[in-house]
Design a protein around this nucleic acid. Structure first.
Lengths: 243, 243
DNA sequence: CGCCAGGTTGATTTCGCTCAAGCAATGTGG
DNA sequence: CCACATTGCTTGAGCGAAATCAACCTGGCG
């Protein structure tokens, strides 16, 4: 919505808290200095759009902190949330490398700091340091894998299984598992966005949550989730077709 | 099924009919000679499996001729056909580069000739010629794009729209459009496989075809399809939600 | 205070799946 | 060469999961 009022901030790649997690960690100090010069960093608030589907792609975005949702919508206006991106993740490298416009949108879900590394800089780095290209390639390979997994899931698994899967994925980053197998989870997403992640309507999300409550699989209050036995979630996964 | 009796054939990369279409076209003659030495070529018949989900990944497969289907199945045994690969396409580069086992299977859908380029060869080529890596990267970027498109489609579009989309995609390679907008199409796929491509059951495929016939959108006889007005197919696409 | 976005709930409908049967083409063994 | 499986496709009847439509309820927030 508000495209003009993003706070520009000055950041330093050498002291960036996410440095170790990025693809850029293969760079030499000289090369990193190049990134440092060729970047612009900005702060975003929840709801701010970093780039839109169809926007021209000017370079590559690197997340220093915060949480970003990658959205994609179809002709009819249906929108899904393809994935979440976290500090250290690089966004938009794909459209950039393929020379396309952005084919999905990035929106801040939490207050975030993001650096834009200019196209020229990226290109010259790729030339100087082929390892960087390979890093991106591996990243793409992983994303592709996830996407294909998601295609399979969305056509074959029922909603309960997809939701259980989502919770299990979120667990790794946002969950605390205590010694006896119970799980506490602080969701980083609204119900709507969770619905968008598994490709269902918000109403269905509500009902699915309700049915998990009724079956004592998980208990929700606001964005807090408590799961007494993680195995129950895993059982849900396999419940796509009764074996 | 029959894993042992694949005919080994001797092929030459320099005279390969698909050479111009592969990622390898960026190689020098010296480098191509390396590929030529480090490869094994084989013939496959329809139904033959080139590699299985879970198989260790020994290198990269390059299609000289034929048609290959990339399948993936979930825990419950549901299978979908992720994409088709054609002469010039390179398969398995992703698992190879990520260092994983294969995460999907490749099956010949037509008699095919395929070369396996050994892992060592690929690795040393990537070192020698960084451009090769970038080519793979672009390829991955495109695949990823397609996969994300498919995620969106499969969650938001109804079956008719997905099928119309499939026909439009197949048109580019297998169709003949005559001057007044009519389309003739020779399907490379069985009904089952078309069903698997859009993630539905064979019965639903039958019914969808029937409904297209009844609405005079397309006429099917065996693997021949005739579409009088391509616009009708395009209309179907948008029909996901009435605008 | 009223408004509005996010969320829940209920009633109804629709789309695609399941289960079951039938049919044509192809293959196979006696 | 016929009797019989097998395989790919189609059709029908009934069911169930999720979408749709509509109402309503909450908790901010101007």
């Amino acid at each position: 919505m508000n495209d003009g009022d993003k706070t520009e901030t000055s950041r330093n790649c050498f002291t960036c808290q996410s440095r170790g997690r990025t693809e850029w960690c293969v760079l030499t100090d000289d090369e990193l200095a190049l990134v440092d010069q060729g970047k612009i960093s900005r702060q975003y608030l929840p709801g701010d759009v970093i780039f839109h589907e169809g926007d021209e792609c000017h370079g590559v975005h690197c997340i220093e902190s915060g949480l970003i949702g990658i959205r994609k919508m179809d002709a009819a206006g249906n929108e899904i949330l393809l994935r979440l991106n976290h500090p250290g993740d690089t966004m938009g490298y794909r459209s950039f490398l393929a020379g396309n416009d952005h084919n999905n949108s990035a929106e801040a879900l939490e207050p975030s700091v993001i650096c834009l590394v200019g196209g020229g800089t990226v290109r010259s780095l790729l030339e100087k340091n082929p390892t960087l290209g390979l890093r991106f390639l591996k990243h793409a390979a992983k994303d592709l894998d996830d996407a294909e997994e998601k295609v399979l899931q969305s056509t074959t698994s029922p909603v309960r299984a997809r939701f259980a899967h989502l919770l299990l994925v979120l667990k790794d980053r946002y969950g605390v598992t205590d010694e006896d197998g119970a799980l506490d989870l602080e969701l980083p997403l609204s119900r709507q966005d969770m619905a968008a992640m598994i490709g269902i309507r918000p109403e269905s999300m509500s009902r699915t949550i309700r049915s998990f409550e009724e079956d004592d699989i998980a208990h929700f209050s606001g964005r807090r989730v408590h799961v007494a036995r993680i195995e129950d979630l895993i059982l849900e996964l396999e419940h796509s077709t009764e074996l």
